[in-house]
Design a protein around this nucleic acid. Sequence first.
DNA 1: GGACTTTTTTCGAGGCCCGAAAAAATACTG
DNA 2: CAGTATTTTTTCGGGCCTCGAAAAAAGTCC
Lengths: 414, 414
Amino acid sequence: MSVGIRHDDLRRRNRAMAIAAVRRTGHPSRTEIASATGLSHSTISAISADLIGEGILAETKGGEQAAARRGRPQIGIALNPKAATVVVAVLSLNDLSAAVIDYAGGLVAEEKRHLSTRSIARDQLVTELVAMLTRLTAGRAAGGRKPLRIVLAIQGITDAAARIMLWSPITPHTDIPFADLLEHEFAIPTTVENDCNMMAVALRWRDPARYRDDFLAILLSHGIGMGLVLKGELFTGTQSSGGEFGHMIHTPGGALCRCGRRGCVEAYAGDYAIWRNAQGKSEFSTPEDDVSTADMQATAARARAADGPERDAYRKAGTAIGYGIGSLFALIDPAPIAFIGGGAAAFDLLEPHIRAAIAETAGGQHSDAISFDTVTDELPLIRQGCAMRALTFVDQEIFAGGVGGLEGVGKEVA
Amino acid sequence: MSVGIRHDDLRRRNRAMAIAAVRRTGHPSRTEIASATGLSHSTISAISADLIGEGILAETKGGEQAAARRGRPQIGIALNPKAATVVVAVLSLNDLSAAVIDYAGGLVAEEKRHLSTRSIARDQLVTELVAMLTRLTAGRAAGGRKPLRIVLAIQGITDAAARIMLWSPITPHTDIPFADLLEHEFAIPTTVENDCNMMAVALRWRDPARYRDDFLAILLSHGIGMGLVLKGELFTGTQSSGGEFGHMIHTPGGALCRCGRRGCVEAYAGDYAIWRNAQGKSEFSTPEDDVSTADMQATAARARAADGPERDAYRKAGTAIGYGIGSLFALIDPAPIAFIGGGAAAFDLLEPHIRAAIAETAGGQHSDAISFDTVTDELPLIRQGCAMRALTFVDQEIFAGGVGGLEGVGKEVA
DNA sequence: GGACTTTTTTCGAGGCCCGAAAAAATACTG
DNA sequence: CAGTATTTTTTCGGGCCTCGAAAAAAGTCC
């Protein structure tokens, strides 16, 4: 149950609003913040004076002046990059990458390396992650302050509290409590997020005009994932990170899915499924562990060249995706979609069948109006999503609270 | 974008919290309200003094004393039934019913009548509704105050703003702006809600222990509907009342649905679909407009008696529902389900197949743990849901604002 | 250089919530 | 039965916070 608003919450919330307005807008003037938040000029004046005093925000000296208008010029206010840093890490199939990001979202340092995630031991996986984060933060800890947040994105399912990786296709190990492990190691608040959810978060920051309140980010790669934003909020399941679009049932009793069940969308549209169909193997044969990008590109090329089993495989994939989207649209109404990942490179092969299938469903009446978009490289998107997630946490949970920024952290160090 | 908290919003919100606590709890003491809302005793004391002074709440004189404990006895605070009335109306196939409800949720007056909704003219439909509401409110307007809210529940789809009936199976007419029509007629704020959503709302009030944050209410009748509560909030589509569970696709290209598409869950599990299969007709034959309750009962009886086409029809229905639920659970994780309506009377015939299908899906791992519940008579549930919806609107939008209750309304009349 | 315009800050007023203390109302106890 | 203990409710003063109005600041325009 939601709880009453204490008097001290008031300032906290309004500070959070002001910070959020700055993060969204870039370098708004006080007047702009006031109108964005609906608060009075005097309140914004007081709050921004505090935030600047605490080193969280900073006035943009000079900068590119807006067209010199009559009247006192506006003073831009921006995030102070030095106010904090956060750490993001992305764990995907056979790859681990991480970065340190400053408070304004700028890259401070990054590292990326190969890791045989499918064969590595459980402890070793954690150790490698800890080691990378240690390397990234070690040099910087001396010069500055400890990062205020770690966000780890993984392909797979997490619990609703974003603390435990419940299951992932990239490793046989399950129920790894990454958040606890990293918090114990670094004493920095940590969450574990689903990669597709982070893609959705990133899209919202990248293109707020297009991806505002309601949209889907669908990952087309070895498996099928989805991040869903509804009414401006990331949609998650009740107990898990949720949104397992790839495991909606397309055909009861149908093709064998990597998850062991039958007829999932993924069992038709995942890389392994397209590959399986293109190779003319039985739909019930065991899925490949991995299909190389080169193989998928070759398959797509053959599908484009001639009407053979490859083209048919993409037809089946598009149909499964389309019906899945149709069923989803029956529940949430149509919304714009971004297709992301390697599979999006073959989107030309999928799109007609996706549209045809959607047209057969409840979302179909506006089938033409549904707009698609593709992004082939998912990693930057995931990383950006993690960064924004981490930073908004710092904004709202730490800096909104008052003791924060350079001052507060400085004291802590002393 | 969410907006800053103005100073005057504070009291408004905390008043709303206090009222909500009373509505949930029945007749809590000030101390209980304080702990429920997290506000201090002094604040609650002030707020409840105001609310009592305005005639919104009232101390429960005497009443059944809680086990006499040491110390000053708690004074129960309850909703003042006379503080307001609301009007609820339910429009379903061939039936129109309406009621006036007092502020404490008690029935003041009701009326119910037959209406040939499928053949009636558009204007006539509205006229009949207006006439019934006029009759119900007329006598009372003299003695008291005008109702503060009208909530109309319909089978079918509304827009997200709950103002327009976009489509309904009970009438060929579409896009009827009921909210505007009734507001114009009565000058009372009105919303139009989906019947299944109201069932879900009602379940939450009836049995909060079982139906708290996440659950489904599935209507099994001529068509299939769903109300969905996620994270304590009614889930609606982005553009419509949403949650068209019955039109998720069960089998691409499958049985002909009433909606004109193929393979929807409803095309297997709606009364008309069960009837069609039981009669041995083609899955592609045009659905009956209506199947009588008696016919459905007879069909169920035959299905129970012998393994024939009737039993098979229920098997297909249960399978479709189960796979639909499975796909839904892939998105939202498993949650308790209430099956409501005439179809729930044959739930014994459906349940094994529903469970078997769910077990084949992503929600399957906990298939046994998913608990089902049935309610055969939907109308009281819909009406209660409407009443609670209307009353909580009055609580939060009117009475929380200060000028309200007997006083304020009295002034208005004067 | 003065008038005008727009942004930002300052200041006093009004509200609201909180904690502590007081008041109220009842049970317990000898 | 009177006094004590206990629990609930109210009262009161203090501290914040937001707001509107007015003042100050910092330019452009003529």
